[in-house]
């Protein structure tokens, strides 16, 4: 968790290279590799899963010892494969939750997902880069994360067919299509609102224009010098 309160630092040379090579108006710099900036390492997830597994084994042992029946023991054995597959599914679900938590945690970093401003940027810098230790409230942080997770979960983009769509034995295609469309529209609208700041942040474009202008001025100066020396 120590990484939570340190800002993401991007390599300025890499960014400069990107500035030179990418076209004006491209949005490649919007994409961030979340895996490389994850706060909670994968080990935490694995540890948690291991703990859950041992707890479940203990519970199943206590259940089997309390039942004492041969028939029940056989039943348990026959369901072993099924349970294993079920666990696999749970692991996948838990991994998605873990990744979502990691993404949500990024909001507590000093400069968020964007990282520290580049040396040439005119963005305001923070003097207090790390929070005061006593002000950190892990519980409050996780409450916010929980809220984020709920918000993402209830989005239900790509609604799947459910029994709620059946009226007197008939699947209502119209309603289903309508709800799907609405959910998708909500998702897009939310994304536009949430990512609006990215579209209004012209830091990258400003730097790109500056670099291009610099190149143009240099070219102009060289041409002028050559023409002057030609006259001499």
């Amino acid at each position: 968790m120590g990484d939570t309160f340190t800002s993401i630092k991007n390599d300025p040379l890499e960014i400069l290279n990107q500035l030179q090579n990418s076209d004006i108006g491209s949005y490649d710099h919007f994409e961030t590799d979340l895996n490389s900036i994850a706060i909670l390492p994968l080990e935490v997830y694995l540890e948690l899963e291991k703990m859950r597994k041992t707890r479940e084994i203990e519970e199943s042992k206590s259940d089997s010892s309390s039942s004492n029946g041969d028939g029940k023991a056989k039943d348990l054995q026959s369901k072993q494969t099924e349970v294993k597959l079920l666990k696999e599914c749970e692991h996948i679900h838990n991994k998605s939750l873990f990744d979502s938590i990691n993404e949500s945690l990024l909001q507590f970093k000093p400069y968020g997902k964007d990282g520290e401003p580049m040396p040439w940027s005119r963005k305001q810098r923070k003097l207090q880069k790390t929070p005061i230790q006593k002000d950190i409230d892990i519980k409050k942080m996780f409450e916010i994360i929980k809220h984020d997770m709920f918000r993402w979960s209830i989005m239900q983009a790509g609604t799947l067919p459910r029994r709620e769509f059946i009226f007197s034995g008939v699947f209502d295609e119209e309603l289903f299509a309508e709800i799907r469309e609405k959910k998708l529209a909500t998702l897009l609208a939310t994304e536009v609102i949430e990512n609006e700041y990215k579209w209004l942040n012209y830091d990258f474009e400003e730097a790109q224009v500056r670099v291009d202008l610099g190149d143009m001025i240099l070219e102009h100066l060289v041409t002028e010098t050559i023409s002057l020396s030609d006259k001499i």
Binding site: M1, L40, V44, E47, L48, M51, R52, E82, L86, C89, E90, I92, H93, N94, L97, F98, I101, I138, K139, F142, I145, K146, M149, F150, S153, I154
Partner: peptide, 24 residues
């Protein structure tokens, strides 16, 4: 996964986050 009905509801999400927070 769908058939066995692993709980993917808000309660399960809450439980997971709680577990993780206590672990941390």
């Amino acid at each position: 996964y769908e058939r066995k009905g692993i709980s993917t509801d808000l309660f399960s999400i809450e439980n997971y986050v709680d577990e993780l927070s206590t672990e941390i």
